[in-house]
Design a protein around this nucleic acid. Structure first.
Length: 348
DNA sequence: GACGCGTGGCT
DNA sequence: TAGCCAAGCGT
């Protein structure tokens, strides 16, 4: 039987190679007794769900500067938080972020719970995030299993079982390797390993501190792991967006319902996105169709969005939506697909 | 367990 | 280019 990799070898590597991230307390500081702020750990983990470090950084800085504590965030207006999240994607996270901040403030006196099971009851916190907060913020001996750890475990154990079926087994593997001490550093170390060495493509096995005990390295199968179930291909859907500009420069927008795609975000009035939309315009006007269409790809479909524009007089009342005054309107408050439509309309 | 849910970078 | 992928969660 091959020896299991040692947590201490990975921690030694992490002590030398830990990335410098805005939400991270470096290993030397942690060893010197500096404790992470659970609020910042939580905020970073929510933002990092299915989202790259590069994309998260500026949002994390903006959120923590504007709302330095969970109580500040709990007291924020919904529309301010949604606008600040615009562009980061998966907008249910922003709605749950606010819900969670308000629960922590009202039910936990503004202090994050430190145990996995209580964390798991909070909005937006699932198995991974509960384990991540418990370990990183509180050094509890919990095992994190994210996409990085899944890949590392598939390779260490050369397990070709396809995900997500393999998930429970991979969690068992990961739990076997989790140490009792320095669990916060360990959790970050194994994820750093996956992000920088044990990468999906072209893994840098020559630099890996666990290479000597990696079954996939021995078998030469690292690059083809983990196996995954086949994905469905994305259909193309079609839609229409109405961009009405009042003569004073105000834009006609609507707040989307909380549930569903882009829930809670601002958007242009228009059609549902399906086969052949033909919705009534949100306001009576001389509508002109732009030559170009906005193209955007969501998680599960491609969208081709026809953009219609109109200039309307001050006294014209809309049937749907609300005019947003020129001073109140910020392009960056919109989700990306709505920005694309705006960019087309404001140029053309 | 399967599906809905964003976005941008990389190959 | 078109698909793959990223510190997943809620239903």
């Amino acid at each position: 039987m091959r020896d299991l990799p040692k947590a201490s070898d990975l921690l030694d590597w992490y002590d030398r190679h830990a990335r410098d991230l805005p939400w991270r307390v470096p290993p030397a500081a942690r060893l010197a007794g500096v404790a992470p702020d659970p609020y910042r750990v939580w905020m970073s983990e929510i933002m990092l769900q299915q989202t790259t470090v590069v994309a998260v950084k500026s949002y994390f800085e903006a959120f923590t500067a504007r709302w330095p504590t969970v109580i500040d965030l709990a007291n924020a207006a919904d529309e301010d938080v949604m606008a600040a999240w615009a562009g980061l994607g998966y907008y249910a996270r922003a709605r749950n972020l606010l819900k969670c901040a308000r629960v922590v403030t009202s039910d936990f006196d503004g202090t994050f719970p430190n145990d996995h099971d209580t964390l798991l009851t909070l909005p937006g916190i699932g198995p991974y995030t509960a384990a991540a907060i418990a370990s990183i913020a509180f050094d509890q001996p919990e095992t994190v299993l994210d996409g990085n750890v899944e890949r590392v475990m598939a390779r260490i154990f050369d397990d070709h079982t396809p995900l997500p079926k393999a998930k429970p087994v991979f969690h068992d593997y990961a739990a076997q390797l989790t140490p009792e001490l320095r669990t916060g550093d360990y959790a970050q170390a194994v994820m750093d390993l996956g992000a920088t060495i044990c990468t999906p493509k072209n893994p840098a096995c020559g630099l890996c501190p666990w290479r000597g005990s990696c079954a996939a390295w021995t078998a030469g199968t690292a690059a083809e792991l983990p196996k995954k179930a086949q994905k469905k291909r994305k259909p193309t859907r079609f839609g229409i967006a109405y961009l009405a500009r009042r003569v004073d420069g105000a834009w006609l927008l609507e707040r989307r319902p909380d549930k569903g795609l882009l829930g809670g975000m601002l958007g242009w009035p228009g059609s549902d996105w399906n086969e052949a939309p033909s919705p009534a315009p949100p306001i009576r006007a001389e509508w002109k169709e732009l030559n170009a269409e906005a193209r955007h790809t969501f998680t599960h479909f491609h969208l081709r969005l026809k953009v219609l524009t109109a200039l309307v007089p001050m006294d014209r009342k809309p049937d749907q939506g609300m005019f947003v005054e020129p001073g109140e309107f910020n392009r960056d408050d919109l989700p990306t697909v709505m920005r694309k439509a705006y960019d087309l309309a404001s140029k053309g």
